[in-house]
């Protein structure tokens, strides 16, 4: 089946098998391997991307469902070589160790702060419940999200 998807501002037209998952389409057909696969049950959030303005787990979405949509991945949030404030904050606050959950964490955070620019620590922790990290104990991720919120507000 033929689909057209705009990813990080670039339009792609591809023939795909209906059963192809969006995450496999992004990683293998488009070579955007920044989006990761961490589980097979929609639990871990490593594969989170933005689709038409909201975050989705791209392992729980068929590529054909994305036909006609606009997608942003971790590769697409820095502008003109400048890191997104959320990327900056993750770096500054040591919000990552092995880096495997990071793309999903950052994409989730971008939406979280769009919906709530001044979240409490509890709201941040609640907002990250769909993303699993095994390295950080979440503490510095939470700090990073709060720091990004502050940076974006000022």
């Amino acid at each position: 089946m033929n689909i057209q998807v705009t990813v990080n501002g670039k339009s792609h037209e591809k023939e795909v098998d209906p059963r192809l998952l969006l995450v496999h389409f992004l990683r293998e057909d488009l070579g955007l391997t920044g989006t990761k696969i961490g589980c097979d049950t929609s639990q871990c959030g490593a594969c989170v991307v933005k689709m038409d303005g909201v975050t989705v787990k791209s392992c729980t979405c068929l590529a054909v469902q994305a036909d006609g949509s606009e997608i942003t991945t971790i590769e697409g949030i820095a502008t003109n070589g400048e890191l997104h404030p959320v990327q900056e904050a993750f770096w500054e606050k040591h919000g990552l160790q092995c880096g495997y959950c990071t793309a999903g964490m950052i994409m989730t955070t971008v939406e979280l702060l769009e919906k709530n620019p001044d979240p409490s620590e509890d709201q941040v922790r609640e907002g990250l419940k769909g993303n699993i990290c095994r390295c950080t104990g979440y503490q510095n991720i939470v700090r990073a999200v709060l720091a990004a919120a502050e940076a974006q507000r000022s």
């Binding site: 293998e28 391997t33 770096w91 040591h94 495997y100 793309a103």
Partner: peptide, 21 residues
Amino acid sequence: IRRREDPRLITGGATYTDDVQ
């Protein structure tokens, strides 16, 4: 100090095994 390895990790630029084509 902040980590030297992070820029590639926060931009999706790192190559893990499953990323190898």
